[in-house]
């Protein structure tokens, strides 16, 4: 078979969306062997034999072969990426949920602190503070109120800190696992669509 004929087969494959050099080499040899056999059996010219070989050997849409190859050779890799992405997505969702829970607890405790202080203040003022109390005495009283609720306030601040930390962890996990997977799978899909078109 001449160089020009080999090039015709190669160009035909490239025009039909084949880009994998190893696969093109395999198919060129496969088609060329079939063409040679057809020519030996029937005496047909290259064009006739090539048409018969294409009809006999290649699927209706030849590029399907390369798509199948791509799917088959990246299957394990894709499964592993999917697993990592979904585990990452799951962990991220858990972190976000717990973070929201801690934020709610923190706001609740903070609210309780302010309510308690108001209650204590009004109770104390109505029952204990006399009209002639000096500003220093009132200041001491306020300090006492604050000490009584400071533990709750500290707890609220701790919870807010944990919530913020979990929120950061959640965003980090999401942006390093699930998000890249989404981009990667969309990229792959668009590449396959390009191959198919």
């Amino acid at each position: 078979m001449s160089n020009a004929e080999i090039n015709t087969i190669r160009e035909y494959l490239k025009q039909h969306g084949f880009s994998n050099v190893a696969l093109i080499d395999d198919l060129v040899d496969h088609l060329a062997t079939e063409i040679e056999l057809i020519q030996a059996d029937t005496g047909a010219d290259f064009e006739e034999a090539f048409t018969s070989a294409k009809e006999k050997l290649l699927p209706e849409t030849p590029h399907e072969l390369e798509i199948d190859l791509k799917l088959l050779t990246t299957q394990k890799h894709n499964i592993m990426i999917k697993k990592i992405a979904f585990i990452g997505g799951y962990l991220s969702a858990i972190c976000l949920t717990v973070s929201i829970l801690f934020a709610i607890l923190s706001f609740q405790n903070n609210y309780q602190v302010s309510i308690r202080r108001k209650v204590i203040k009004s109770q104390y003022l109505s029952s204990n503070i006399q009209e002639e109390a000096t500003p220093e005495t009132i200041s001491d009283i306020y300090n006492t109120y604050h000490n009584e609720t400071s533990l709750l306030k500290l707890q609220s601040l701790n919870q807010l800190g944990i919530s913020q930390m979990l929120m950061v962890v959640s965003i980090l996990i999401f942006s390093t696992t699930y998000l890249p997977y989404q981009f990667y799978s969309r990229y792959q899909r668009s590449e396959l669509e390009l191959l198919a078109s």
Binding site: M1, N3, A22, D25, V28, D29, H30, L65, L69
Partner: peptide
């Protein structure tokens, strides 16, 4: 061919290219 290439990629097969006329 997809199976042959997948098996090669997984390390079960290896290839040897030989020139037959003007094709590989």
């Amino acid at each position: 061919y997809p199976s042959l290439h997948a098996l090669t990629k997984e390390g079960y097969l290896e290839t040897e290219a030989v020139m037959v006329g003007n094709r590989t």
